[in-house]
Design a protein around this nucleic acid. Structure first.
Lengths: 320, 320
DNA sequence: TTTAGTCTGGCAACCGTTTGCAAGGGAGGA
DNA sequence: TCCTCCCTTGCAAACGGTTGCCAGACTAAA
């Protein structure tokens, strides 16, 4: 159907290699010939077949981006930032969603192999061992996970958790619930680690939980029952679900219980009460990940990005 | 680096074609040979190179999905549905975001060409003519756009708009603002068409607007000033921005002005007031689009899916 | 024992491009 | 006038597979 390089070559009585060079090394072909080729190509609507080209050159100028749940508003800004950055480098980003399923994640990575030049792995659910094995076939940059010798973009979750806990402590909260995320989540571990180091607080752990609104909704009752006056949630979605659950039980937020999330997603800003949260540098992370992938010959540079506490309406003084 | 078919062939003293058949036509190779090949392949960690395979077979078992703005919560459910459906058919879906930019859209389509077997085009911003031209190189299924002879999945926006207007009329509203979306949006046109046919209503049009919260926010003042007691917004994001703007001006929703959106996205459900909206069949559309792409030899079947009005808290009786 | 038919697996062409090598032609210097 | 050297182009191999065709080895039927 579509015109190939041969059609163009035939159309202007020239060898295919000349046509090829016209596109990939124009300075090697005589200007006159070049324009004849270009004219013929244009005439036939010829576009180089990127897959075929990748076969010989080994480069696709594509990169894959794998996220656990594209429905989580945390990801779209990261995705867009990565795409924009890649576009500036003449690359394209293909996005795929694993539905939080490690098997799907593995399959997607395998599918991407040889169809992209590298993969950006966002908060992977796969085991480190598996990721290392897969890394033999395609370069990775991992976001929010630390794996030996692998380039990574980390968000300083521990610092954010610390800020959040200090904020709560300053408001007089002592007993604080920590609602964690899925098993094997690096972010969740970091949060717990930071919390464990916080002095003079009485922490109650809840987890693992789905990292979604539903996850928050389903622990709301337990959290309310545990006597905590404040909650640190795995992410904003969980925090929002939590608030919804608490409000449904007529438990005021922040009058009775204060809630802090992580991420700083749009719905948190629109919510009533507006969500206090630890802002994650999603945009910077998307950009950095792209650059890291393009730079690294697989070398394991690690970048850590700062987080920031954004105080809004879902936190207040502890009731006495 | 990675093992190729040749390595496997050499490793078990067999011709490459035999290895190839072991994977793509197992019944043609002797069980004994087959297991030898399989063992060697496993040993070397061999995986067929999908790009290379696509070159000869012409099939990639991938499909592309292009959306205008992945940040819009309307898309993720559609994307997930498409991915799930595709997975069930042994296909993978690569997603890309155009940032509402037709040029980016075109470039993405060109990039997908030959790397996927077909493209799902969601609410494209490209002209019909351009889409038809590009369709010569890669099969399309278009979602929410009608293009002659091209398979399409349509959502019955006109019907939804009709329901919404009837609902408002029933609440005593007469002067209604219609806040439309981007230029060239089929959805927007359908809405306007349906509205124009509504009897006995006094309609005020505002547009074009960005299909985002910001878009809604920025027309809020004009809408408030026009004397309408109700608004039909292009989508939920716009509706949410509108509500935020109205509330900021101390104009009660729904006490002073009723607001209806389109899509039924999650933030609308969490918002206070909860958003009344026309639910769009995003999940069904994602599924259908995949099936249509797989079935159609490019034949232009058109599927229209129904919409439904969901009455929540952002609409109420017109003040007298 | 011959014959026809079924299984297997090798051979080689091909998919669309790239790229190292070499050859022909022309220009410039000696 | 002859020799270099550069420019331009063609040739052919390669990238990693797939697949139609063919031949040899068996098997089973006659």
């Amino acid at each position: 159907m579509a015109a190939t390089i041969k059609d163009v070559a035939r159309a202007c009585g020239v060898h295919v290699s000349t046509v090829s060079r016209t596109f990939s090394a124009p300075h090697l072909v005589n200007p006159a010939t070049r324009s004849r080729v270009l004219a013929a190509a244009d005439d036939l609507g010829y576009r180089p077949n990127r897959a075929a080209r990748a076969l010989t050159t080994g480069r696709t100028f594509n990169m894959g981006l794998i996220v656990a749940d594209i429905s989580n508003p945390f990801f779209p800004p990261l995705i867009k930032a990565a795409q924009a950055q890649a576009r500036g480098r003449d690359y394209h980003v293909f996005v795929a969603d694993t539905d939080e399923d490690p098997r799907v994640e593995e399959e997607l990575i395998r599918t991407f192999t040889k169809q992209v030049d590298g993969v950006l792995l966002c908060s992977p659910r796969l085991s480190n061992k598996m990721i290392e094995r897969l890394a033999e076939d395609v370069p990775f940059v991992v976001i929010n996970r630390r794996i030996k010798g692998m380039p990574a973009v980390l968000m300083n979750v521990a610092q954010g958790a610390k800020l959040a806990l200090e904020h709560l402590a300053g408001l007089g909260h002592r007993r604080i619930a920590l609602v964690s995320g899925p098993i094997g989540s690096w972010t969740s571990n970091e949060m717990q680690g930071a919390a464990a180091e916080a002095p003079g607080l009485d922490l109650v752990f809840f987890g693992p939980n789905q990292p979604t609104e539903a996850g928050g909704l389903s622990v709301a009752a337990d959290v309310a029952a545990c006597g905590a006056t404040a909650v640190l949630a795995y992410n904003d979605l969980v925090a929002l679900g939590l608030i919804e659950g608490l409000l449904a039980m007529e438990i005021g937020v922040p009058e009775k219980i204060s809630v802090i999330g992580f991420d700083d997603i749009l719905p948190g800003r629109l919510n009533r009460p507006k969500l206090t949260t630890v802002a994650m540098p999603a945009v910077a992370a998307g950009r950095m990940a792209v650059d890291l992938l393009l730079q690294s010959g697989g070398e394991g540079a690690t970048v850590t990005l700062d987080t920031a506490l954004i105080v809004r309406e879902s936190t207040g003084r502890a009731q006495t």
